[in-house]
Computed example of a mutant assay.
Amino acid sequence: MLIDFVGVLAENSCNLPRGARMSQPPAPHLPASPPALSEHDQEALHDLYVRGTPQNTLRAYERDLIYITAWKRARSSAADAAFAKTLQWPERQDMALKFILDHTRDLDKAPLNDPARHVAEALIEQGLRKSLACPAPSTLDRRIASWRAFHRMKNLESPFDAPLIKQARAKGRKAAAKAPAPKSAHPITREVLEAMLATCDGSLRGIRDRALLMLGWASGGRRRSEITRLMFEDISLKEFEAKGLIWLQLVESKTTLKGETPRLVLKGRAAQALVHWIEVAEITEGGLFRAISKSDRVLPRQLSPDAVYQIVRKRLSHAGYPKGFASPHGLRSGFLTQAALDGAPIQAAMRLSLHRSMMQAQKYYDDVDVAENPAADLLG
């Protein structure tokens, strides 16, 4: 039987307590199958969607559908109570327009009796919204993209494709436009990284943190989730003794699907630090980076992405940098920034960072080029 992800999740999403989320990942949704499809073909179609939908996308669908359903229930008037119990397929255009209007202005400046403000306050109380401030255009774009995807899954036209609504979205994007905040206040360049590594002592925790930071930086600026998902089985030590190389095979990344991620290489000090950690922690299988007890004993539990955040924050603090100086994304931005400073070709840096777009990686090179541009010194 095919699982109607959108329908099932929509029915349960608003019954969650404040701050709660679904305990299990959402089941992949499939479009309504043509009546002529046999049960065997339906199962094949289901399998196709399971294999073709990244887990990160499913988690985004889950979060967006929970938010959209909660917003609609709170936004609908008493006259629309029955209509608001579940999402409609296709959704009404007036509801789609209200969604855009409610999310393209600062509601803290709205009158206290403004319906949109009431809804936002209700969502904040449920832990689904952080503040009354206007959400980032990218956040709204993602939620609309999910809502449109839900319609495609049901083989229906989306209300967001209507000319008036498309124009309203474009105007709202311009009205709310602002310079995007960097994911890390500062890049963790080689100088910053060396200062962080200097705080790592010979304890198991110090050895682990050194290996984690060096791998995260030197392998191309890995994301937190990519670091913590690494298993011992994902690395190859066959060429370490002869060439000092370690090969990494990410199962998937934000920009690649399972089985499509190219191998990455780790060499030099970073490779040595990783091997040292593996040896002292006696890791022969399972998670590569693990929790360590207060008594400095390696535990079987893998680190979480939040643990990487705590490690970066702690090492920056020990190195004398102010609070909030950089986040784990600074490993990624720092790698590309350092590549630009050292004159490495952008294509070579992207080969390790796995950036999908040249434009995304180019901005780090542009910042360096502008700073070094002699035209910036014309005034002396």
Rank of each mutant, 00 (worst) to 15 (best):
A120I: 12
K154I: 07
G127K: 01
Q126W: 14
D108I: 04
V119Y: 10
A120P: 07
L112S: 14
P137H: 13
L123H: 06
L123F: 07
N113T: 02
R117N: 02
W147H: 10
R148M: 13
I124Y: 12
D102G: 03
H151N: 02
S131R: 05
I100C: 08
A96H: 01
R117F: 00
Q126K: 15
R148D: 11
K130E: 15
H151G: 04
N113M: 10
K130S: 15
P137F: 10
A149T: 10
A122F: 01
W147T: 08
L132T: 08
S131A: 09
A120Q: 05
A96P: 09
K154T: 04
T104L: 07
D108C: 06
A110W: 00
L132R: 01
K154V: 08
A136G: 03
L123E: 07
N113P: 00
V119H: 09
H103W: 14
I100R: 00
L156K: 10
A96V: 08
I144N: 14
G127D: 04
A145M: 07
V119W: 15
P137Y: 10
L156T: 06
A110R: 03
R152M: 05
A149M: 14
R143S: 12
K98I: 02
D102T: 01
L97F: 04
D141H: 10
S158P: 12
A110P: 00
L132F: 07
E125P: 01
I100Y: 01
A122H: 07
R105Y: 03
Q126Y: 12
P137G: 06
D106S: 04
L128C: 08
E125D: 12
I100G: 08
K98Y: 14
L123M: 10
E157G: 14
I124C: 09
T139A: 05
R117D: 07
M153G: 15
E121M: 14
D114S: 02
I144Q: 11
F150L: 13
L140D: 08
L97G: 05
E121Q: 15
S146D: 11
G127C: 07
T104N: 10
R142W: 06
A133R: 14
L101R: 14
I100Q: 00
H151S: 05
T104Q: 13
P137R: 10
R117C: 00
S146E: 03
E121F: 00
R129G: 05
A120W: 09
R143N: 11
P135W: 00
L107A: 07
D141R: 04
V119K: 06
A145Y: 12
T104G: 08
S146T: 12
R152D: 07
N113S: 10
T139R: 08
L101V: 10
G127N: 03
S138Y: 15
D106M: 00
K130D: 15
T104I: 09
L112R: 12
S146W: 08
A133K: 08
A145P: 13
D108V: 04
L140Q: 12
A116C: 04
I124D: 05
K154D: 11
L123S: 03
C134W: 00
S146M: 09
F99W: 11
R143C: 08
S131Q: 07
K109V: 03
L132D: 11
R105S: 01
K98N: 13
R143I: 08
L140E: 15
A133T: 11
